[in-house]
Design a protein around this nucleic acid. Structure first.
Length: 491
RNA sequence: GGCGCGUUCGUCUAGCGGCCUAGGACGCUGCCCUCUCAAGGCAGAGAUCACGGGUUCAAAUCCCGUACGCGCCA
């Protein structure tokens, strides 16, 4: 167990979502990297719920996020409810259930003078900010309550003035963030803000709860998005003030939308679960996400699950932001679908077939029809449309009708074939091909003049599976019917 | 506005001073295969390595500056 380790601690990473909505692509990527890092090193992966936003956090979001992570196939070792053992190190991995813990440490900081109450109201801070901006000064908190005398504090408290607690940044020196991806990044302390660590409500802020928990939960590595880099010096000073060792930091580049701005709802599907609904395979999603901001020196593209774990490292992580490109994701998903055995694919396709309202009972087996089109699917959601003609009335594509069926001689071909195949046996792939090719020769027709109308009559489309195997699977009766029906349409 | 980060084909990226006339992948184009569509095979187009200065015999790679983008601070 991690809590007995010292110094050369075990690798422990965490996934710490704010349950204020679904899990988006960026969050999923961060989660994946933390998970890969932990698994690569045989370490542990901890799930913590950062619900310090009391207004927007919901249990539904927690559920949605856990569903997403589970779908991606990422498992965790501790939290949010499952303890490592009965005497698990933490009572809860929900931050709002840990408020007493934060208060205790805030008390310590206050006692040592490393934190102070701030009585400024929102409006006052807002006004100072405006003024600063007008005067072209940086709009940072000026530290008005930084050096209040005890008397002044007492007076405020007596008046029942609400207050927040701010962390006191050192005025001198610099703080160096030794980042595993970016190297050493230096910040001047006097330019950093005195961050609020406890809100007027008494609840902790993200920046403080995160520090306390990462320490108490013994994180060895904090791997997170680039947007947190700027707050890291303040956090490092908090660790210092509390006498704690800092974890190792690694800041990942951000993920952008196609327009170069941070990926968000505006860019369409950004929830991981949207991709499940669209018919992506979790393995493909994982592989694609891994390559957003990480690469091996040989630029390998496709990785098995184990390979991803064994080859992942922080050194291969990119500093510059990456654009989320679904075109490559689609290709990759197709690769994964092609690698999926038919029996599994049928299982995976089931919900999509039902969702499309396609009734497959009584028709050819899915083993055959799905196998027939196997290499064509890029998304699971495409499966029903590509096999539907086996199971329902043919819908003629207008262009196919115009170009192929209404071509001169097509009707005669259809009727001729219907006649020839009525008694033909065995009704199977190679034999059919032989027979139909002979039909072409007998009538002095080019293969295309026969094959194309035949396909359109049976499927309604010009493009589709390989012809003769398709006929075999469809079965003689249905093929003959369709030939006659199509011919009838042509009067 | 201050601070921080970033900038190699359209996109994801390799590259860590000479192997780079910049490699791979997706996408794109063409050809082959072929009963269509895919898949597969082959070939090709596509990057003055953001720009400008240095350092060096030698720079995509090191240093400085500029521009642009992004993030944090509100």
């Amino acid at each position: 167990m991690g809590n007995t380790s010292v110094g050369t601690a075990k690798i422990r990473t965490r996934f710490a979502p704010s349950p204020t909505g679904y899990l988006h692509i960026g969050g999923a990527r961060t989660t994946l990297f933390n998970w890969l890092f932990a698994r690569h090193h045989g370490g542990q992966f901890i799930l913590r719920i950062e619900d310090t936003d009391e207004v927007r956090s919901t249990e539904d979001s927690v559920q949605a996020i856990l569903d997403s992570v589970a779908w991606l196939g990422l498992d965790w070792d501790e939290g949010p409810l499952t303890m490592t053992s009965e005497k698990g190190p933490h009572q809860s991995y929900y931050q709002m259930k840990r408020v007493d813990i934060y208060k205790k440490y805030i008390g310590e900081l206050l006692k040592e003078g490393n934190a102070y109450p701030c009585y400024c109201t929102k409006d006052e801070i807002e006004a100072m900010r405006r003024l600063a901006q007008l005067e072209k000064r940086p709009p940072k908190y000026e530290g008005r309550c930084r050096n209040l005398t005890d008397a002044q504090r007492k007076q405020n408290d007596a008046g029942g003035k609400p207050f927040s607690i701010r962390f006191r940044m050192p005025e001198e020196g610099t703080t160096i963030v030794d980042d595993l991806i970016r190297g050493k990044v230096e910040f001047e302390n006097k330019l950093q803000q005195d961050l609020v660590i406890q809100k007027t409500t008494g609840g902790p802020t993200y920046n403080f709860a995160c520090v306390v928990d990462d320490h108490l939960m013994e994180m060895s590595h904090v791997i997170r998005g680039d947007e947190h880099l700027s707050n890291t010096p303040s956090q490092i000073q908090m660790y210092k003030a509390l006498g704690w060792e800092t974890p190792q930091f690694a800041h990942l580049s951000m993920i952008m939308g196609p327009d170069g701005t941070k990926l968000s709802k505006r860019h369409g599907a950004t929830s991981v679960l949207d991709y499940k609904v669209k018919g992506y395979l979790p393995e493909a999603m994982r592989n694609y996400l891994a390559l957003l901001g990480w690469a091996t020196t040989d630029s390998q593209q496709l990785f098995s699950g184990e390979e991803l774990i064994s080859k992942f490292d922080l050194a291969g992580c990119q500093k510059s932001p990456a654009t989320f490109d679904t075109v490559k994701l689609d290709w990759m998903n197709g690769e994964y679908i092609r690698k999926t055995p038919i029996s599994n694919l049928i299982q995976l396709a089931q919900p999509f077939i039902e969702g499309a309202g396609l009734k497959v009972n009584g028709g050819p087996s899915l083993e055959k029809t799905i196998a027939l089109e196997h290499e064509k699917f890029k998304l699971l959601s495409e499966i029903p449309t590509l096999i539907e003609f086996f199971y329902k009335q043919v819908e003629f594509n207008p262009k196919a009708m115009e170009k192929v069926l209404k071509a001169p001689g097509a009707k005669e071909v259809l009727l001729g074939l219907a006649g020839e195949l009525k008694e033909f046996s065995p009704f199977e792939d190679k034999k059919l091909e032989e027979r139909i090719r002979k039909f072409c020769v007998d009538r002095g027709l080019k293969p295309g003049q026969v094959f194309h109308p035949l396909r359109v009559a049976c499927t309604g489309r010009t493009e589709g599976p390989t012809l003769f195997l398709m006929l075999e699977i469809m079965g003689r009766e249905k093929v003959i019917d369709r030939l006659n029906e199509a011919a009838a349409l042509l009067q």
